[in-house]
Design a protein around this nucleic acid. Sequence first.
DNA 1: GTAGGGTTAG
Length: 718
Amino acid sequence: MAAKLSAVVDVHHCNISYPSDKNQPPHFTASPLRISTKRFTIFCTSSKSPPKTAPGKAESKKRKTPSLSEQLKPLSNTILSDQPNESHQLLSKPKSIWVNPTKPKPSVLSLQRQKRSSYSYNPQIRDLKHFAKKLNDCHPADDAAFQAILEEIPHPPNRDNALLVLNSLRSWQKTLLFFNWIKTLNLFPLETIFYNVTMKSLRFGRQFQHMENLANEMIENGVELDNITYSTIITCAKRCNLFDKAVQWFERMYKTGLMPDEVTYSAVLDVYAKLRKVEEVMSLYERGRASGWKPDPVAFAVLGKVFGEAGDYDGIRYVLEEMKSVGVQPNLVVYNTLLEAMGKAGKPGLARSLFEEMLDSGITPNEKTLTALIRIYGKARWAKDALELWDRMRLNGWPVDFILYNSLLSMCADLGLEEEAESLFEDMKGSESRKPDSWSYTAMLNIYGSGGNADKAMRMFEEMSDKGVELNVMGCTCLIQCLGRAKRIDDLVQVFESSVDGGGIKPDDRLCGCLLSVVSYCEGEDVNKVLACLHKANQNLVAFIKSLEEEDTKFENVKQEFKGILSNTAVDARRPFCNCLIDICRNRNLRERAHELLYLGTMYGLYPGLHTRTEEEWRLNVRSLSVGAAHTALEEWMQTLTKLVQRREALPEVLSASTGAGSHKYSQGLANAFASHAEKLAAPFKLREDKAGGLFVATREDVISWVQSRAASLASIA
DNA sequence: GTAGGGTTAG
């Protein structure tokens, strides 16, 4: 199974089967990834004659996160044989009715938790605690001193005394030394609990190898490994990112006939959650449920986390429904996890109502709750809610920590709340425990950068170096963006060189994207200065720009080069790269190239939903495009519509283009640019003032007569 | 850190 963990699993062809032997862990089989070969074009005209710009096949490698219902489908078909006449609907409770009564219900976990041995009071506790403290205080490198203290143990190191001391040692090295000392004394047999206590300390020190050695020693010496041993091993492996080890030890439990209890089981759920293996988590969860398990809040927190990381809102709802149907009241951690998950799934409104529900249930938020919520409101640009929450925090005296302070600053940056950020930043400078760090300064650079205040941004930059706060790659990006917009290219070059050559900043794709955007709008010698910076960060990109400018570069070459660049670029930065490259082409009068890049970008899945069609309305969605890319898309669309009209093909009643309203304070240019471009083409798109979100609309009749008049005027020119 | 599982920042 360890090998399968790294395999690509096609969820649509994932079969999960029960092992025939109940002492086998649940396992998964998967068919190899299928490559989609669906044809697509930028704008579909008709089936009769595809546009000439559509020669390719889909080569998008990006795979959509499957929805929960898609993931549950194979599960419900293969293992959950409940309610055979009903389709297994999303959010329906997976009731486990085992259909074959001659076979026992397969069990994957023990419903009884591991019993702990009870401690008896140790009358020597004070002396032994004092002894343990001496061991803890002993210099870590001084083995001789440690041994000397050991000899002075105030009471005989019998089972109970040794256990008490073992439990009181802090560092894993000392725990291990003490454990080995007890072992050499050979006064009593070392039971499981001695190993478990030692392992706990090793886990704290993230010492998986030592831990595994101890586990193997237990096996050799015939000491029983219990659920506590296994859960400690599994969580240690997880913390050390040794996920295959975690799974390996989990499998070993079943092989030796030991059933995991719910603690071990949810530890393993979390291993798969960390690996973002949603379908495996669900499979384990469902199988646990089928075994009669009533999951507790910890299990639901794991489930919530995995759906949050997948951005799967249906999954989050499923978790909420499951909790309701199992009768589990969410606790603070579960709420925090689900709030975080709602943010990742892009549902600020639902996060808000979940937060209110949490308050209504009598739970007080902690720093993590508030950090999650502030961040969600900031990213959603919900200024009113963010400021309201901030007020409530102060009013109610809710807990605040350093991370929350920095998150508030970042929220101010997201919302362009310069004054609020400045006053918070001053508060932090005045406090003893919350002095601004590189996160805080980055937020300030972000605020001044996106506000176009290059002087203040540079002052921050200087203050950082005075105070010895290191600039990080994001701060550097904000600063460079700001200096670029202010056309302070020499300052830009100086900041770039000092931070990359001297400051140890490794340029990432975002920083390259930022330099690329500066290239798109600067002129003259400045272009070469910025390109020289970009060359240090990404040589291929600069070579590609040069090749775009050369007339004899063939489309096939552009395609191959661009594909290579995109596949070496972080997913988040791919669309910005494409947008900037299109802008560069347009600003250099390379219109054909711009169209080629838009076509390729669409083909590689960078602009999903660029064009949506219903029977009544076709819509061009340019909100994720740069100005140049939006121009290019509009031209492309007009060409397509022209062809359709000329061929007398059916058009919908309404044609529209959506530019977005530019909810960010500093990004309102697209609607204006679009309006003026439509005007230049004399295209009949009119801004709908009554609708929010920059919507331009034309009727079918307007478009037809516009095309006909254009054709007439073109004919008259000819 | 009570022999074991889950939650904070571009």
